[in-house]
Computed example of a mutant assay.
Amino acid sequence: MNYKFITLVMILLTNTGISFAQSAVIEDFKPSSVNQPERQFPQVNSQGRVRASIAAPNANKVKLDIGGVKYDMVKNAAGVWTGESAPQDEGFHYYQLDIDGALVPDPGTLYFYGAGRLGSGIEIPASDKDFYAIKDVPHGLVSENIYFSKLTNAWRRCFVYTPAQYTADAKTRFPVLYLQHGSFEDETGWSSQGKANLILDNLIASKNALPMIVVMDNGYAYENQKSISGDKVVRPVSVFEEVMMTEIIPMIDAKFRTISDREHRAIAGLSMGANQTMRIAMNHLDKFAYYGGFSGTSNYPSSDEINPATFLDGKFNDGKAVNKQLKVLWLGLGTKEQNPFPDSVGAFKTMLDKQGIKYVFYESPGTAHEWLTWRRSLHQYASLLFK
């Protein structure tokens, strides 16, 4: 036996990132938990690999596109293409199929609004999935609330979670958390991909969080533009802060049994929503006593040193005043997130430290800029509210 040749091959495989252990696929695939009813594909195995399958007999090339990487699929005699990905991180991921260059959703899955479109999603079972699992506990209600916005001159909607106690006791009033999505997502994200209602159900049932109302609105709100003659292109002006303060909050306080003071009102958001909600909170500290930023702050995307005298019009310049006004200033980030998020959050934390401002920082182990990071963040943040 030529041991020198075998050793050379093993060295080459190691240097190219390939190993015999990595190449072995464990055949314990099971249908994803977010498949359409009775659909067997896509599937996930214990390694976190995703296996997709689609009938496309006339296609010339089909790929599985997930996590920014495309994996070739193979066609059998019946015209069915099948292929699998490398192991994926735990949690929820968007993906799509590339059929002869056309990017399309996988018809086997439920559809989720993310990346600016309705598309496919996959759940890689997480080791800590118990905190957002459906359990035999009292469950709250997520209701769709449609309203007309004078600021945008358009119909809008928000989803409102009311805890099980809300219907059980018709007299009690509840604190409110305003919870925002990220870029290219919408008001459906937190109760669909984010499992916010299940997270709150389980926290409240275990007495690790107080019963609260959660309001999830659409962060895209633009000023009603008058028609403009000529070819001039006008960038739409965001009025989400104004919509939140003058339309959403008054509507929620009028329609639901809220406790409508700052000590019982919190706000949080992920990524783009973290930026928006920080600005709203700091501009209206007479209305909010709690802030949570999941994978983002208002200095995004800059990682430059923050001057507290000018940042957000000096809202963080007086550290003692901020500590007195904010009962909880909370920041969360996944350990696998890539820049600009770690740098921008890091620069913000450095500024807080220099100003002597108290905050809670949480790192989600093994997750990137994705929903498991934000589920864990909500789980940690909500447990600190209104206590």
Rank of each mutant, 00 (worst) to 15 (best):
V176F: 12
K358H: 12
R265C: 02
A368F: 06
F361C: 14
A168H: 05
W155D: 03
P57I: 05
F29S: 02
D186Y: 01
K195R: 15
E305K: 07
N35V: 10
Y300L: 04
L329Q: 04
Y362R: 15
D318S: 01
V328T: 04
L198N: 07
T350L: 11
L64Y: 10
R157Q: 07
S303W: 05
A154Y: 09
E90Q: 08
A321S: 00
M282W: 00
E363A: 10
Q22G: 13
F256C: 08
M251A: 07
L198T: 12
V69T: 12
F184T: 02
F240R: 12
F92R: 15
G121F: 00
E38D: 07
V69I: 09
F348R: 06
L12T: 05
I146F: 06
L200N: 01
S19M: 07
E187A: 11
G79N: 05
F256T: 11
H379Q: 04
D186L: 01
I6S: 07
G91M: 11
E84R: 01
R262K: 15
H369K: 00
S229G: 09
L141Q: 13
I54G: 01
G101H: 09
V142Q: 15
Y222A: 13
S229Q: 09
N339F: 00
N218Y: 13
L333S: 04
N283T: 05
A321Q: 00
R375V: 05
D318W: 05
S183M: 11
H93N: 10
G91D: 06
V328D: 13
A55Y: 11
P42M: 14
D65R: 07
